[in-house]
Design a protein around this nucleic acid. Structure first.
Length: 1095
RNA sequence: GGGCGUAUAGCUCAGGCGGUUAGAGCGUCACACUGAUAAUGUGAAGGUCCGUGGUUCAAGUCCACGUACGCCCA
């Protein structure tokens, strides 16, 4: 056979096979390493990998992020930057613990304690690393270049040492503190959650039905109005009846007006009651008023108002508690409790305008109680069950709530309400539906509960965080001041401690005797060794900062003269997000190692994650970067949208609403998936619906055109010169052989490079995809289609142009289609890898403006001409005599362009006429009047409607330049005259080129007359088509010579005889046998390849 | 319950300051074209611009009220 000048290509393409082959090649060639090391060390582009949590297999969201994490570094590498890419594993935290508990069949913390922290943490460790192999397989299959050998894990002792260093830094800067704070709390996992964990996904807030109750608190005195209001019932409202046993205050709004109502003596609730004045009517029936004789209950209640007070005057009123469990003020510190507090947050939109407060169970409650000197008292244990004390007698000797001891809070609502009813303290009970937060991992409804916790004082550095956000380039840009900026403005202190087991330790030791308080913070292994005599060491004797090893470090409290108290580590571990936020420095064990490296590799040039990380990784990284280094952690960030299933819902395994990842890899390939995800609006913040059709679409629009163009090129380059092949080379800009079509595609190539460069420099990936898509279409459906004959004719200039264009196209497409471009580029050039090549320079591609302009005009004409043929019902195979092209400067289309038009539209003769020299009227082209209502409206007012109607109905005229419509004269600018085909012209078909060229700038006239001669040629062309179809049916080679037998009606046979040479040449027919049948005979062709005639 | 946002073709979405014939891509259908191509070209059908009322010569666009959905917050 022939020697291949360019790589052989197979016609029927299976992209996944090619991809697997390229992946193997990269592995043996070590291309990734070369791509990093071939770039200078002193010109880096710094990329941080947002560590995934590998306790499950990757899904589309991970793949999406992974593709971007690959694409940007590939592009920057081609631009000449050195881009190191280290993989990272996020390993700590509640998700790992829950997964391990599931594997071990555990449901609560007691079982963990029983098993022992050592064994439990071993289980967590293996759980979290369970999928690392599968992960690398996926990452590799998606053609993501990342360094797995030099990876980092958050569970490594080096990483953790940097984490405790960071904590100590914050501590020394006064940015950490321990406090009592009310936090969302999951009683199932027995851990508080940080506020940003409430925003993790859409399923956290779900509607929930809770009982809401209104209860009475009789005023006993106190404050300025105590004597006057003694005996009046405060009607207080709450949606959490289970917190009523720890009611220590009620709150009223300072500017709200409150009314005292005298209830009917014979009603359910006799006596005087206080409620917000606006809400008296709403509670009328509850306190005993009824509709009677035209007077509604609400009106009756209003009439019974006996006093009005402004909220702020009610301060310090004292009231009778519901029960007396906390009556021993000395023991509980409740001497300031059971009073009215003034609070701005109170509204009258719900309830009564008087709000029950329990200091331990509400954020506002806790703050206002602290200000009022009321203590935080918890009534439940870690699992949210009421303490045993409720079964014991109160100081008053009763046990009103004995039933709730040991009962979970939500279960306790009912018995508590029953008790209120029995005690005559219940005014109203109502169910209340509200959106309520649930644990983002276990879906249990959360409660709000006071816990001791360590905090990062984010509010202290908020202003600086906002300033540093100015230096960050967000994609999409609205996130900067929107989702992220707003979040920063409302930032609250970050609760970083978790009462759990598997995580970086809080490096704080405290005295176990409150009489001799002392706190110590350690920020390194060496500091620990110095204080405790040795490193914390695990069972294997290696330094290890995990529990339980670190908890074993204790020492006598140096501040205790008795020598009895001991310094012990606070049990909590750090929020896993503290690990994530520490990643920039902890991945290199800063500051213990790599101090200078870190200083030159922070902030990162680029990071990417999904938009929700504005509350997660983006946020915690920004906090720590600001607090520790006073600079942003990253300079450019893409925050992409969410990947949805094919039904537009969140992807769900059980719903099966998305294509299987491996199926897509095996059927369409990784590049197809990459293209689908990268070209979508998801990188601009929108969401994306994953469908198989969408993935196929990308294959059709870009992958196949690229492949087919390459196939076409290789086919001719290899068979040229009688089979010895032609070695194509990059075309020179000043090559005199270049045709207008060549100039056109070379100019487009330069545009492609410019557009893609600009887009990728802006991190606007989908814009780059658009440019590639447009180019692929132009290349195959215009340049190659129009150049076929030159390839048959072995016009090597065309070979060189196509080589140049394809070689450039594959380089530009390389970051977006790394596998298939590699195959094509290597086939074209014989080079090592397209990813080692430099990004093309747009100036390298000649741009002849005049050629571009004329070709664009030519395309306008062929497109409109095609529509004109359709309109005239003249199929394209039927040659027509003349097309008159009337455009400005028509003569410049003479030659090549004219030839293209004739060829595309199958026209014998194209007549070029300048717009100036032709009278439009002669071709039935008239004018149409359009009133410019925007201009005419203000002047004419109501009259303008007449003019508009006149213009539409034809009731208008132009005389001496004066335009009249509907009887109204229009002034210059109030109308436009456009051209339009106004009459039928028998054997002419006319169309106006107004859309493309502007009004009155051009039109086409098609001569639709059919002569016998033209019809015969049309018939001959139909026959050619029939024979070509027969060749295809027989699976003949393109170059096979054939013997053809044609059976047809006598008229068709005559037509073919008249054009026998044409038919024979076009179909490579050597022997043509014509068989004339009946008049009605349908045309049939049978073809036989002639042996040895292969070209 | 409060704040913000959205509602336009079967689907996804454009529609500065109001201007009378509301667009694009995908999908559907028809026709054409096809020996590198798994393509491609031309066209058609498809709309109560969420509803009601108002302002105006003129409302998809502005205002009010309502409905549905989404996000954020209690």
């Amino acid at each position: 056979m022939t020697s291949a000048a360019h790589g052989k290509v197979q016609n029927s393409v299976r992209f996944p096979e090619i991809e697997e082959r390229i992946l193997k090649y990269w592995e043996t060639d070590d291309t990734f390493k070369a791509s990093v090391e071939s770039r200078p060390e002193d010109d880096e582009f710094v990329f941080y990998d947002g560590p995934p949590f590998a306790n499950g297999l990757p899904h589309y969201g991970h793949l999406l992020t992974g593709y971007v994490k690959d694409l940007v570094p590939r592009y920057q590498t081609m631009r000449g930057k050195r881009v190191e890419r280290r993989f990272g594993w996020d390993t700590h935290g509640l998700p790992a613990e829950l997964s391990a508990m599931k594997d071990l069949g555990m449901t609560d913390k007691a079982e963990i304690e029983a098993m022992g922290i050592e064994h439990f943490n071993d289980a967590c460790r293996s759980n979290v690393l369970k999928f690392t192999k599968e992960w690398s397989a996926y990452v590799n299959r998606q053609a993501r270049w990342v360094d797995f050998e030099n990876d980092y894990k958050t569970l490594n002792v080096e990483f953790m040492e940097s984490v405790i260093w960071a904590f100590k830094q914050l501590h020394e800067k006064g940015l950490t503190y321990q406090g009592f704070r009310v936090l969302p709390y999951c009683w199932k996992d027995e851990t508080p959650l940080s506020n940003h964990e409430l925003r993790m996904d859409d399923e956290v807030y779900k509607d929930r039905q809770d009982p809401s109750v209104t209860v009475t608190f009789p005023i006993t005195g106190g404050g300025a109005l105590g004597d006057q209001l003694r005996g009046v019932n405060l009607l207080a409202w709450t949606t959490t009846p289970w917190t009523l046993p720890t009611n220590f205050s009620v709150a009223v709004g300072p500017d709200i007006e409150y009314a005292v109502v005298e209830a009917p003596a014979d009603g359910p609730l006799p006596g005087r009651h206080m409620i917000a004045a606006d809400l008296v009517g709403a509670y009328a029936q509850d306190i005993g008023f009824t509709d009677q004789n035209e007077v509604s209950a609400a009106e009756a209640a209003q009439a019974a108002v006996v006093g009005r007070y402004v909220g702020k005057d009610l301060a310090q009123l004292e009231y009778e508690p519901l029960w007396h469990y906390y009556a021993d003020t000395a023991a509980w510190g409740t001497q300031n409790a059971w009073r009215v507090l003034i609070e701005d947050y109170i509204t009258t939109t719900d309830g009564t305008g008087i709000v029950h407060q329990a200091s331990a169970y509400g954020e506002e409650d806790q703050r206002s109680s602290e200000e009022a000197g009321i203590p935080v008292i918890l009534s439940v244990d870690a699992a949210a069950q009421f303490l045993p004390m409720f079964a014991e007698p109160t100081p008053h000797g009763d046990t009103p709530l004995a039933e709730i001891a040991g009962v979970q809070v939500f279960e306790a609502n009912r018995p508590i309400i029953n008790r209120l009813k029995a005690d005559g303290r219940l005014v109203r009970e109502q169910s209340y539906v509200h959106s309520y937060p649930h644990c983002w991992r276990c879906r249990t409804p959360l409660m709000y509960k006071a816990v001791t916790s360590w905090y990062v004082a984010v509010t202290e550095i908020k202003a600086r965080m906002l300033e540093l956000n100015e230096q960050i380039n967000w994609i999409p840009d609205n996130v900067k001041y929107g989702q992220f900026g707003k979040w920063l403005e409302n930032a609250r202190d970050w609760s970083i401690s978790r009462n759990r087991y598997w995580g970086s330790p809080i490096p704080v030791w405290a005295s176990d005797d409150p009489n001799y308080p002392r706190t110590e913070v350690y920020g390194s292994l060496d500091e620990l060794k110095e204080a405790f005599g040795d490193y914390p060491r695990n069972a294997a004797g290696e330094p290890d900062l995990h529990r339980p090893w670190i908890d074993q470090l204790t020492r006598p409290n140096p501040d205790d003269p008795t020598g009895k108290s001991t310094m012990r580590r606070v049990e909590d571990v750090l929020d896993v997000w503290f690990d994530s936020g520490s990643m920039p420095f902890a991945q290199v064990h800063y500051p213990f190692e790599n101090a200078s490296w870190f200083d030159s590799h922070n902030p990162a040039d680029f990071i990417v994650e999904y938009i929700g990380q504005t509350r997660g990784w983006f946020y915690t990284m920004h906090i720590l970067a600001t607090a520790l280094f006073d600079r942003p952690g990253f300079s450019n960030v893409i925050s992409h949208g969410i990947v949805l299933g094919s039904d537009g819902q969140k992807m769900s395994k059980s719903l099966q609403n998305y294509p299987d990842v491996n199926e897509v890899f095996n059927r369409d390939g990784s590049d197809a998936m990459r293209w689908f995800l990268m070209s979508s609006p998801i990188l601009r913040g929108g969401n994306l619906v994953v469908t198989e059709e969408g993935i196929r679409e990308g294959v059709r629009q870009v992958l196949l055109p690229m492949w087919n163009a390459w196939h076409f090129f290789a086919l001719y380059a290899n068979s040229a010169n009688a089979g010895t092949g032609y070695q194509a080379r990059p075309v020179e800009n000043d090559d005199a052989q270049l045709t207008p079509l060549d100039h056109y595609i070379l100019a487009a190539t330069g545009d492609l490079v410019r557009d893609a460069t600009e887009a990728l420099d802006d991190f606007d990936v989908s814009r780059a995809c658009d440019a590639l898509r447009r180019f692929a279409d132009l290349l195959t459906n215009w340049y190659i289609r129009r150049s076929r004959q030159r390839f048959y004719d072995e016009d090597f200039t065309a070979y060189d142009v196509l080589y140049t264009v394809l070689e450039t196209f594959t380089r530009v497409a390389a970051p977006l289609l790394p596998l298939v471009t590699e195959e094509v580029w290597r086939g074209l050039t014989g080079g090592r890898s397209v990813h080692l090549a430099d990004w093309p320079d747009p100036a390298r591609y000649v741009r002849d403006e005049r050629a571009v302009e004329l070709m664009d005009l030519t395309r306008v004409v062929t497109s409109a001409g095609s529509a004109l043929r359709k309109q005239a019902k003249r199929r394209v195979r039927q040659p027509l005599a003349t097309l008159t092209v009337v455009v400005p400067g028509a003569q410049s289309l003479a030659g090549t362009y004219e030839q293209i038009i004739a060829d595309e539209l199958n026209i014998k003769q194209v007549e070029l006429r300048d717009t100036q020299e032709v009278s439009a009227e002669q071709y039935g082209i008239g004018q149409q009047l359009v009133v410019n209502a925007r201009v005419a409206g203000p002047r004419l007012g109501k009259e303008v409607q007449h003019a508009i109607r006149g213009a539409k109905s034809g009731d208008w005229s132009v005389s001496d330049g004066a335009v009249t419509a509907g009887g109204l004269e229009l002034k210059e600018g109030e109308y436009t005259l456009t051209t339009t085909v106004s009459e039928e012209l028998g054997d002419k078909a006319v169309t106006v080129l107004e859309k493309a060229l502007g009004a009155g700038q051009g039109f086409l006239v098609l001569d639709t007359r059919l002569t016998a001669e033209l019809m015969a040629e049309g018939t001959a062309r139909d026959v050619i088509r029939t024979i070509q179809a027969a060749r295809k049916d027989e699976d003949l080679q393109v170059s096979d010579r054939i013997s053809t037998t044609l059976t047809a009606s006598p008229a068709v046979v005559d037509a073919v005889e008249a054009h026998a040479e044409l038919v024979k040449t076009e179909t490579l027919t050597v022997e043509l046998n014509l068989v004339a049948g009946e008049e009605t005979e349908s045309t049939r062709a049978s073809v036989v390849a002639i042996e040895g005639s292969h070209a």
